[in-house]
């Protein structure tokens, strides 16, 4: 919460109470997630095999503690939320708290990232990295689109030559650059 609109720290304020309400579902899910993970940890800990040779404190004790801490934190969070205590979104130099959340950008960034993961082995690291850089820059507002892709390609090839070629990281060059010697360590 950074800018004046973020006076949202005060749920009393009519305008901001609305904003808080809008954010409540997600926060509730986050708190429930903590609680659910805690319950899962407590239940799943019972399946950890305790060998006969185990010391006084076996492999289950610490997980039980962690599960209990998660459950405790989750319950405290839920109680806090019910009383209207909301989390403060983290601020930052480039975070504009006055604009509504742009879910489309987040979804597209995730999609671009997934595409990168899936293509590393098929089209090779340099092209997959070009896709990642160009794609996310365009999603974040880089124009014209071809400049973002060109910059991405230059950056990716540089990284490939420096880290793959010179430092010997085995980044897969992919079919297109397979024959270029400097791209392989």
């Amino acid at each position: 919460m950074t800018t004046p609109t973020s006076v949202a720290t005060s749920p009393d304020d009519g305008r901001t109470a609305l904003a808080a309400l809008r954010r409540r579902p997600g926060e509730l899910v986050a708190a429930l997630g903590v609680l659910a993970l805690g319950i899962f940890v407590l239940v799943d800990t019972r399946t950890i095999v305790v060998p006969g040779s185990a010391n006084t404190l076996g492999p289950r004790a610490f997980p039980y503690l962690v599960g209990a801490l998660l459950v405790g934190a989750g319950i405290t969070l839920l109680v806090g939320l019910a009383r209207g205590r909301h989390g403060e979104e983290e601020g930052g130099e480039d975070v504009d708290a006055s604009v509504p959340t742009d879910w489309r950008t987040v979804a597209l960034l995730v999609a671009v990232f997934l595409a990168h993961v899936l293509t590393i082995t098929t089209i090779g690291w340099p092209l997959a990295a070009t896709l990642l850089f160009g794609g996310s820059a365009i999603v974040l507002g880089a124009r014209p689109w071809w400049r973002a892709l060109a910059l991405g390609l230059v950056l990716a090839v540089t990284v490939q030559v420096v880290f793959g070629g010179l430092l010997g990281l085995s980044l897969p060059p992919g079919p297109l650059f397979e024959s270029v010697a400097v791209f392989r360590g």
Binding site: A137, G141, A148, L171, P172
Partner: peptide, 21 residues
């Protein structure tokens, strides 16, 4: 900023990939 964060994503992905390829 669009180039900055695209670059951060690129190097983040590189660092994780370089762990075990």
């Amino acid at each position: 900023r669009h180039y900055l964060y695209a670059g951060i994503l690129l190097f983040g992905a590189l660092g994780s990939f370089a762990l075990n390829f």
